Amino acid sequence: MSRFESRNVSEADVPASPAEIWAVLSDPDLLARFTPLIKAISTDGDLWCWQLSGISALGVSVAPSFSERMHLVDEERIDFRHDPPAGASERAGADGTYTLTDLGDGVTRLFIDITIWVDLPLPRLSRRAVERVMDESMERTGDRFAANLYRHLDIDPGDVVERTPAA
Protein backbone atom coordinates (compact mmCIF):
# COMPACT_ATOMS: atom_id res chain seq x y z
CA MET A 1 0.00 0.00 0.00
CA SER A 2 1.08 3.54 -0.72
CA ARG A 3 -0.41 6.71 0.72
CA PHE A 4 -1.55 9.40 -1.68
CA GLU A 5 -2.91 12.81 -0.71
CA SER A 6 -4.42 15.97 -2.07
CA ARG A 7 -4.90 19.38 -0.48
CA ASN A 8 -7.46 22.01 -1.40
CA VAL A 9 -7.19 25.52 0.02
CA SER A 10 -9.71 28.19 -0.91
CA GLU A 11 -10.91 31.52 0.39
CA ALA A 12 -13.81 33.74 -0.63
CA ASP A 13 -15.86 36.66 0.61
CA VAL A 14 -19.41 35.34 0.48
CA PRO A 15 -22.44 37.68 0.69
CA ALA A 16 -24.07 35.75 3.54
CA SER A 17 -23.91 35.91 7.31
CA PRO A 18 -21.68 33.52 9.27
CA ALA A 19 -24.89 31.97 10.70
CA GLU A 20 -26.20 31.12 7.22
CA ILE A 21 -22.93 29.48 6.14
CA TRP A 22 -22.51 27.80 9.53
CA ALA A 23 -25.94 26.19 9.15
CA VAL A 24 -24.60 24.29 6.12
CA LEU A 25 -21.07 23.48 7.33
CA SER A 26 -22.23 22.15 10.70
CA ASP A 27 -25.05 20.03 9.27
CA PRO A 28 -23.69 16.61 8.25
CA ASP A 29 -26.66 15.90 5.96
CA LEU A 30 -26.34 19.18 4.06
CA LEU A 31 -22.55 18.92 3.94
CA ALA A 32 -22.81 15.45 2.40
CA ARG A 33 -25.55 16.50 -0.02
CA PHE A 34 -23.58 19.52 -1.25
CA THR A 35 -20.20 17.74 -1.54
CA PRO A 36 -20.01 15.40 -4.56
CA LEU A 37 -17.33 13.05 -3.16
CA ILE A 38 -19.25 12.44 0.08
CA LYS A 39 -22.03 9.86 -0.06
CA ALA A 40 -23.11 10.29 3.57
CA ILE A 41 -21.94 11.45 6.99
CA SER A 42 -23.10 9.73 10.16
CA THR A 43 -22.44 11.21 13.57
CA ASP A 44 -21.81 10.09 17.13
CA GLY A 45 -21.27 13.29 19.08
CA ASP A 46 -18.12 14.98 17.78
CA LEU A 47 -17.06 11.87 15.85
CA TRP A 48 -18.32 11.96 12.27
CA CYS A 49 -17.97 9.02 9.90
CA TRP A 50 -17.61 10.16 6.29
CA GLN A 51 -18.57 7.68 3.57
CA LEU A 52 -17.06 8.61 0.22
CA SER A 53 -18.81 7.93 -3.07
CA GLY A 54 -15.65 6.52 -4.55
CA ILE A 55 -12.18 7.41 -5.73
CA SER A 56 -10.76 5.98 -8.95
CA ALA A 57 -7.17 6.24 -10.09
CA LEU A 58 -5.14 4.13 -12.49
CA GLY A 59 -7.74 1.37 -12.60
CA VAL A 60 -8.18 1.14 -8.81
CA SER A 61 -11.50 2.19 -7.28
CA VAL A 62 -12.25 2.49 -3.57
CA ALA A 63 -15.22 3.85 -1.65
CA PRO A 64 -13.72 4.27 1.79
CA SER A 65 -15.27 5.54 4.97
CA PHE A 66 -13.28 7.26 7.66
CA SER A 67 -13.75 8.77 11.08
CA GLU A 68 -13.17 12.43 11.81
CA ARG A 69 -13.02 14.11 15.22
CA MET A 70 -14.85 17.41 14.77
CA HIS A 71 -14.19 20.51 16.85
CA LEU A 72 -16.82 23.17 16.22
CA VAL A 73 -16.61 26.76 17.46
CA ASP A 74 -20.09 28.14 16.82
CA GLU A 75 -20.25 30.29 13.65
CA GLU A 76 -16.44 30.76 13.63
CA ARG A 77 -14.48 27.59 12.97
CA ILE A 78 -14.58 23.87 12.34
CA ASP A 79 -11.43 21.79 12.71
CA PHE A 80 -11.38 18.10 11.92
CA ARG A 81 -8.73 15.42 12.28
CA HIS A 82 -8.71 11.78 11.32
CA ASP A 83 -9.50 9.69 14.39
CA PRO A 84 -10.30 6.04 13.68
CA PRO A 85 -11.88 3.89 16.38
CA ALA A 86 -9.43 1.90 18.53
CA GLY A 87 -8.13 -1.09 16.63
CA ALA A 88 -9.67 0.03 13.32
CA SER A 89 -7.62 0.41 10.20
CA GLU A 90 -9.06 3.01 7.85
CA ARG A 91 -7.62 3.35 4.34
CA ALA A 92 -8.54 7.02 4.02
CA GLY A 93 -8.81 10.14 6.12
CA ALA A 94 -8.95 13.89 6.07
CA ASP A 95 -7.67 16.81 8.09
CA GLY A 96 -8.93 20.31 7.68
CA THR A 97 -10.36 23.60 8.78
CA TYR A 98 -13.28 25.81 7.85
CA THR A 99 -12.95 29.35 9.17
CA LEU A 100 -15.71 31.96 9.01
CA THR A 101 -14.86 35.62 9.56
CA ASP A 102 -17.66 38.18 9.78
CA LEU A 103 -16.66 41.11 7.56
CA GLY A 104 -19.85 43.05 8.36
CA ASP A 105 -22.61 44.15 6.01
CA GLY A 106 -23.75 40.54 5.56
CA VAL A 107 -20.43 39.30 4.15
CA THR A 108 -18.41 36.39 5.51
CA ARG A 109 -14.87 35.42 4.59
CA LEU A 110 -14.92 31.64 4.23
CA PHE A 111 -11.54 29.92 4.38
CA ILE A 112 -11.33 26.19 3.65
CA ASP A 113 -8.21 24.04 3.98
CA ILE A 114 -8.71 20.29 3.48
CA THR A 115 -6.17 17.53 2.98
CA ILE A 116 -7.54 14.11 2.08
CA TRP A 117 -5.44 10.97 1.87
CA VAL A 118 -6.00 7.40 0.81
CA ASP A 119 -3.94 4.21 0.96
CA LEU A 120 -4.09 2.38 -2.36
CA PRO A 121 -2.58 -0.87 -3.60
CA LEU A 122 -0.43 1.00 -6.11
CA PRO A 123 3.32 1.53 -6.29
CA ARG A 124 4.80 4.80 -5.04
CA LEU A 125 6.01 5.30 -8.59
CA SER A 126 2.42 6.15 -9.53
CA ARG A 127 2.28 9.02 -7.01
CA ARG A 128 2.30 11.85 -9.58
CA ALA A 129 -0.48 10.36 -11.68
CA VAL A 130 -2.68 9.38 -8.73
CA GLU A 131 -2.27 12.69 -6.90
CA ARG A 132 -2.96 14.62 -10.12
CA VAL A 133 -6.28 12.75 -10.41
CA MET A 134 -6.99 13.42 -6.73
CA ASP A 135 -6.13 17.13 -7.12
CA GLU A 136 -8.45 17.48 -10.11
CA SER A 137 -11.21 15.64 -8.29
CA MET A 138 -10.80 17.80 -5.19
CA GLU A 139 -10.92 20.97 -7.32
CA ARG A 140 -14.11 19.86 -9.08
CA THR A 141 -15.59 18.86 -5.73
CA GLY A 142 -14.77 22.28 -4.27
CA ASP A 143 -16.33 24.03 -7.26
CA ARG A 144 -19.49 21.92 -7.01
CA PHE A 145 -19.71 22.43 -3.24
CA ALA A 146 -19.46 26.21 -3.75
CA ALA A 147 -22.12 26.17 -6.47
CA ASN A 148 -24.46 24.11 -4.25
CA LEU A 149 -23.82 26.39 -1.25
CA TYR A 150 -24.52 29.53 -3.30
CA ARG A 151 -27.69 28.04 -4.80
CA HIS A 152 -28.90 26.99 -1.32
CA LEU A 153 -28.24 30.47 0.07
CA ASP A 154 -29.67 32.15 -3.07
CA ILE A 155 -26.36 33.87 -3.83
CA ASP A 156 -25.33 35.03 -7.29
CA PRO A 157 -21.84 33.52 -7.79
CA GLY A 158 -20.85 36.81 -9.44
CA ASP A 159 -21.26 38.50 -6.05
CA VAL A 160 -18.67 36.22 -4.43
CA VAL A 161 -15.12 37.57 -4.25
CA GLU A 162 -12.59 34.77 -4.52
CA ARG A 163 -9.31 35.38 -2.72
CA THR A 164 -5.84 33.93 -3.01
CA PRO A 165 -5.42 32.06 0.28
CA ALA A 166 -2.46 32.92 2.45
CA ALA A 167 -2.22 29.29 3.65
Rank of each mutant, 00 (worst) to 15 (best):
G158F: 04
I55L: 00
S17D: 13
E136G: 15
E75S: 07
A166P: 04
A12E: 00
F4A: 08
G45V: 08
R163V: 04
D46G: 07
M138T: 02
I55K: 00
P121W: 08
L72D: 04
R151S: 12
L110K: 05
D156I: 10
V14H: 08
G87M: 04
S53M: 13
D83N: 06
E162D: 14
S10E: 00
D27F: 05
S67G: 13
E136L: 14
G106M: 03
W50K: 05
E76L: 13
P123K: 02
D154V: 06
L30E: 07
P157E: 07
D79G: 02
D119A: 14
A129W: 10
P157F: 04
A166N: 13
L103I: 01
P121A: 05
D135T: 11
I114A: 00
L103W: 02
V60S: 12
D27G: 06
L100Q: 02
D95H: 14
V9P: 00
D79M: 05
R69Q: 12
V160N: 03
D102N: 10
D119N: 15
L122F: 09
D95G: 13
L122N: 07
R132Q: 13
G96T: 00
G158E: 12
S67I: 07
D154T: 09
D135I: 09
F80V: 04
P84R: 01
T108I: 09
L37K: 12
R128F: 13
R33T: 08
L30I: 06
T97R: 10
R81H: 15
P84V: 05
R109A: 02
A166L: 14
R77W: 12
D83A: 10
P121I: 03
I55V: 05
P85L: 14
E11S: 04
G104L: 05
A167E: 13
L31M: 09
A129D: 10
G87Q: 02
G87V: 09
V60W: 13
R81P: 10
G45K: 07
L72N: 11
L103M: 06
E75H: 12
N8G: 13
G158A: 12
A86D: 15
T115M: 05
M134P: 03
G93W: 01
H152T: 12
I41N: 00
D105N: 11
D159W: 08
G96E: 03
D159C: 10
V161P: 01
G54W: 06
V107W: 11
L37F: 14
I114F: 05
D13P: 00
A32E: 07
S2D: 12
G59R: 08
V24N: 03
A12K: 09
R91I: 14
L100T: 01
E139C: 12
V73L: 14
P157Y: 06
H82A: 02
G96N: 01
P157S: 08
L25R: 04
R91Q: 14
V73Q: 14
M134V: 09
F66C: 03
L58T: 07
E68H: 06
S26N: 10
Y150G: 01
I116W: 10
D154E: 12
R163D: 05
R144F: 12
P15G: 07
R132H: 15
D79L: 11
